[in-house]
Structures are given as structure tokens and as C-alpha cells.
Design a protein around this nucleic acid. Structure first.
Lengths: 244, 244
DNA sequence: AAGTGGTCTAGACCACTTA
DNA sequence: AAGTGGTCTAGACCACTTA
């Protein structure tokens, strides 16, 4: 297998490519937890970029808690503790994988449309702007966990056109296209399953659902997603860590 | 007044001195909220250090949420936004007051008891340790919002003895007695109202409830509270702020 | 003594915003 | 067109760790 190298011709900054390459090495296990990664000097030579670029890439992973620098010793791979994931913006697939559950999706509907006023407002769109609407059942180990309704401004939504919407990981896809996520606001509420919800989730009408509404913002502060997800309450609960 | 300048002879890194100087300017109001601070070029000249050093100083404050950089525009001083409250450990009363709602409570039951095994486990208690159990209806503007079941290790619970349990703010009371809260873990789930829940909350049986289970830890890492609260879903939802 | 990450300089070109 | 922060290079000396 050929080693992935940074490419200065890509629109993605070099330091970010470096970060992604290192992230993959951690995920793939090539760089194991607790192990010291190659020194900055070695990485400079291997990837043929400046020390600043290597350091910026590493710093991005330090910020995410995946690497830890020790002066005089080296940079080591951290064990990803469960708690570090809390409060972090992750997609359904990432979350399921972290729990050791196989993620999946069943596509129910895809449509370009002019959104309701309240959705347009959440996405800061004008009255007649289009959105891409995607409705999916989210699966965990092949069983239905949630119904997901997502709305994307059409410039964002276009990035998903022609992709397999049952396999796609939205957030990963966006970041590959240079749209970087910054933060999200969520509201968690409870509601009863409608007749249709019940049918899709294989539960009884009026069974309790956990509803999550999320607005996600890109690094340039644009809202790029409004998603409303109804989870089966027997298959999912939400964890929060608070500090005083 | 003499302007404070960074000094390369000090053991403190220059970038950190820069950070401290900027932090003081924000605190003192010399740099006002929303205002654009001098550009990097100006700061380089004024403090006679390199761009890297200025940028590292600024980045440290960006990380703390005190400054925000906008490419092409400049770097602005952030207001301490509402979102900073999110992820903070607060009690029901504090939370309601922040929303402009008058908090209250109706006491249903107080009892010293030996807890169920699963509760003892959450509080890290031995089999025969006692807890103080308190059951209350939580009110917002005199209307029922939630049913709250709280369990306190008896040494903690004793601090509440003789207090008016319809008026008390648990967290404030604890801190006045030298028990300081550090953090909490929560689980948010959805369930249907039982017949008794419905009666207490003035809703219908099987209406959806948002259940919050919280374990709170003191600064010496002891669990000091396990509380289970069922909220009317039409009167309450949960907000979360996530970062990537 | 050799190797590591920490700090710092001087300079360059780019993308974005505003005039 | 001018000004801003974003990214990147090449190089230097320092503090800390290990051998």
C-alpha cells in the first residue's frame, strides 16, 4: 500500500492534510496508543514540509485530545477516553462506531425543496432559497434506532449529489470538500411516536421518543445543517458531562 | 501610566507575556467587547516581536474564547456569550432564574432509608449505608414542571435537616457548608408518564416525559447526589452546545 | 552528548473583506 | 487597491529527557 502524502496543489491546507494523515494512522492502529510517534525532524523529512506545518497538524490533534506532547521525550498517542467524546460534535456513524455498534442507514426520501419558514430561519436562508431534504432511518447493528430528517442549504447539499446516501457519513464528506464544522447547538426533548414513526421504528404508537434538533455551524459561522432526529428511547439515551 | 512591555529576559515566554498583556487590556476595558484590536502588523511593531509570537499570544486567548479572528477583517474581543452557561453544572432554581422564571418546589416526601442496590452503586456506598431521599415537585411560575427524586449520602443529607425543603437551593446550601461541587454526569432519556406522574404533573397518562439522571461529584471526587428528574416535555427541553 | 519538543525570528505568498 | 488574518518556509537557540 502506498503511503498517503500531502499535496500542495490541493485546496486543503498542508497542515490539515498532515493532521488527517496522522489521524488515520491513529485510527488504523499504525500509531498505537501510548506509543511515541516519529519526531518532528523525522516527519519534516518524510513529508517534506516545514516544522511549522508539522507542528500545526500535530497541535490540531492535541486539541482533540488524540496526541500529547512531552518536551524532551516526544509526542505520544493518547487513549481516547469515553468522556472526551462528550460535548464533541460527532455524527451518528462516528458515535455508533465508538460504542462498537455497526452503523447504517436506510434512505426514505431525498428532495430539493423550499423549506418551511421555521427551517429557513434556523439555516439563516432567504424565503426562496432551496434546501436538500434527506429522510433516513438510522440503523445500529441492522436494527432501527432513529428517524432522521436533515435539511442542507443547497450549496452544501450539492456535495452529496451522486453519493450513496445509505453509506455516506455527512460530516466526513463535508470535511473532504473543505467545509469544516465548528460547533452545533442542540435541543433535546421528549415526544410520543406517531403512527408512522412507530411503523418505521418497529415500536408501538405513543411509545416515547427522544427528539434531538441540531443546528451545525461551519468554521466560517454559516449554518450548514438542520437535523431533527427521533430516537427509540429503549435503544438510545443521551449523555452529558457538566462542570461547575 | 506606563505601557507594559514584554521582556525577553524574563523566564516567561514572550508569547505568554503578550497573552497576559492582551488579557489585561480586555479586562481593563481598554479593548472593548466587539471592538477590533490592532492588526498583527501593528502589534509586531508596537511590541517589537515576531508575527509568530503575536499570533501565539492571540491564539491562546482565542482558545479561551476571549478573542475571535476573522480573516480579512481583524481580531475582535468576544462578549461572554450565553452559551458559556451550557455545560455548566447548575441547579433547577439557578436555571429557572436565568430564564426569568420563578422557581419553586412542593415537598412530597422526606425519608432516611437504605437505598436500592443500583442507587447505592451510583453513590459508591456500602450495602447498609443510609441515604436521605427527597421527593419534590419542581415549579416554574407556580406551575408543575418536573418530579424530582434525589438521594444524598446521609452525611450530606444531614446538612439539609431542619431546613425548609420547599425553599432550599441544594447546591447553594452545600457550598455554604464547605461541600464544593466539581462536576456531574447526566443521562437524558424519554419515557411515558405513569398514572401517578400524570396526576402530579397535571398531564395525561403516557404523555412524554424527559428523564434526567444526574450523579454529582464534589471537589474531592466523592459522589454526593443521585437525582432522577422527570420533566413535562411541553414545559422543558434540554439545550446542549457541542464543538468539533 | 544527543535527541526531543518549546520558543522565536524574518520573510513570503494567499484568501478574504472593505473601500 | 489596500489591509486583514491564513498558511508556509528556513533557520536559530533553548529547556527538558534519556543514555
Amino acid at each position: 500500500m502506498v503511503e498517503r502524502m500531502p499535496d500542495a496543489n490541493l485546496p486543503t491546507p498542508l497542515y490539515y492534510q498532515i493532521k488527517q494523515i496522522f489521524d488515520e494512522k491513529i485510527k488504523s492502529g499504525e500509531w498505537q496508543t501510548g506509543q511515541i510517534i516519529p519526531s518532528e525532524i523525522e516527519l519534516i523529512q518524510k513529508y517534506n514540509v516545514s516544522r511549522t506545518t508539522i507542528r500545526e497538524g500535530i497541535n490540531a490533534l492535541v486539541k482533540e485530545g488524540k496526541l500529547q506532547k512531552k518536551q524532551g521525550k516526544g509526542t505520544i498517542v493518547c487513549s481516547v477516553r469515553m468522556e472526551e467524546r462528550l460535548g464533541k460534535l460527532t455524527g451518528f456513524a462516528e458515535e455508533m462506531l465508538a460504542k462498537g455498534v455497526k452503523p447504517g442507514a436506510r434512505l426514505l426520501e431525498v428532495r430539493r425543496m423550499i423549506p418551511d419558514k421555521w427551517i429557513a430561519e434556523k439555516l439563516s436562508l432567504a424565503e426562496d432559497d432551496n434546501v436538500l431534504y434527506i429522510k433516513r432511518i438510522r440503523l445500529g447493528n441492522e436494527e432501527p434506532i432513529a428517524i432522521e430528517h436533515s435539511y442542507w442549504p443547497i450549496e452544501i447539499g450539492q456535495l452529496f449529489m451522486g453519493k450513496d446516501l445509505e453509506k455516506i457519513a455527512f460530516y466526513a464528506e463535508l470535511e473532504q470538500n473543505g467545509v469544516f464544522l465548528k460547533e452545533a447547538d442542540e435541543i433535546i426533548a421528549a415526544r410520543n411516536a406517531s403512527r408512522e414513526d412507530a411503523k418505521l421504528l418497529l415500536i408501538k404508537m405513543n411509545d416515547p421518543l427522544l427528539r434531538m434538533e441540531r443546528i451545525t455551524y461551519s468554521t466560517n459561522a454559516q449554518p450548514i445543517e438542520f437535523t431533527c432526529t427521533d430516537y427509540r428511547s429503549d435503544r438510545y439515551f443521551y449523555r452529558v458531562h457538566l462542570t461547575r
